[in-house]
Computed example of a mutant assay.
Amino acid sequence: MDQEPAKRDMVAGLDKGLQVIEAFDQERSRLTIAEVAERTGLTRAAARRYLLTLTALGYMRHENKQFTLTPKILRLGQSYLHSARLPRIAQPLLYRLAYALGEAASVGVLDHDDLVCVAAVSAGQLISATLQPGTRVPAYCTANGRMLLASLPPEASDRFLARATPEPITSHTIVDRARLGEEIARARERGYAVVDQELELGLRTIAVPVRNFRGDVVAAMNISVHAARMSVEQMVERCLPALIQYQVELNALL
């Protein structure tokens, strides 16, 4: 594991500037200086300077005392998608997998306690708005996320469960920590995870881990189906063999 850099080697201004960018999300797309200061812990004066700097650089827009992100911010995410090896290798395999089954497929990675989609193919099926590169959702209620949590060392998985505060996103979402721990353990034992409408009503997913040449789990790959078209049992029977086939192929390339 990489060592933490010494504090003297850190650029505090860059850290704070990124915190300002991360203060904006789907629920808070327009923020005032005071709101950014509150969300980042910066003083209002410091928040103002960072917001004005980002505006001058083209990453922010300022109107009626509120700031919003501009499309230029997408360059930061595109830099990862265009340069990282995993999305480039996974995308063509996902295309073949999705169209072989006629369902949506995606690959995701853990970022702290969230699942971030890095590659996806819909195969003509409009399943969910979360199945596209760059989307970020809670790991505990997604098949890819739960598979990745199951692939963590036991102590890391226990730490996640200790700090997790699951919310009832749908009526199916598992919010009890003990039961969530059982589901993570079940995914670890079976080698695949199934999530039934815990993130979105009507969305069922099944996922397997993706390993690199050293055998380390670096991502998870899933198939998503609409609940009205396929039961959980049918999804396991039909989708899991194909997932395993492409899992082996993707593992060999990493």
Score class of each variant (00 low, 15 high):
161 L>P: 05
215 G>M: 10
184 I>S: 04
120 A>S: 10
135 T>G: 11
107 V>M: 04
144 N>Y: 06
224 S>L: 12
197 Q>H: 06
192 Y>P: 03
201 L>C: 10
123 A>S: 07
202 G>S: 07
158 D>L: 04
161 L>I: 04
210 V>K: 15
140 Y>Q: 06
144 N>T: 09
126 L>Q: 09
187 A>Q: 00
185 A>W: 05
219 A>Y: 10
190 R>L: 13
206 I>H: 07
209 P>Q: 06
149 L>R: 00
160 F>W: 00
228 A>W: 12
122 S>W: 07
130 T>F: 15
171 S>F: 15
108 G>N: 04
102 G>I: 06
221 M>W: 13
102 G>L: 07
112 H>I: 14
108 G>S: 10
99 Y>M: 11
157 S>N: 00
120 A>W: 09
219 A>M: 06
228 A>K: 15
178 A>I: 13
104 A>V: 03
187 A>G: 05
158 D>Y: 02
148 L>D: 01
197 Q>I: 11
205 T>F: 13
119 A>S: 10
121 V>Y: 08
175 V>T: 12
129 A>I: 15
132 Q>I: 15
112 H>T: 10
221 M>Q: 05
130 T>G: 08
126 L>N: 10
172 H>W: 15
163 R>F: 04
191 G>R: 08
173 T>C: 13
100 A>K: 12
178 A>V: 12
181 G>T: 02
199 L>H: 01
212 N>Y: 11
132 Q>R: 15
207 A>C: 07
112 H>D: 03
195 V>Y: 00
156 A>S: 09
113 D>C: 09
160 F>T: 00
212 N>T: 13
167 E>T: 12
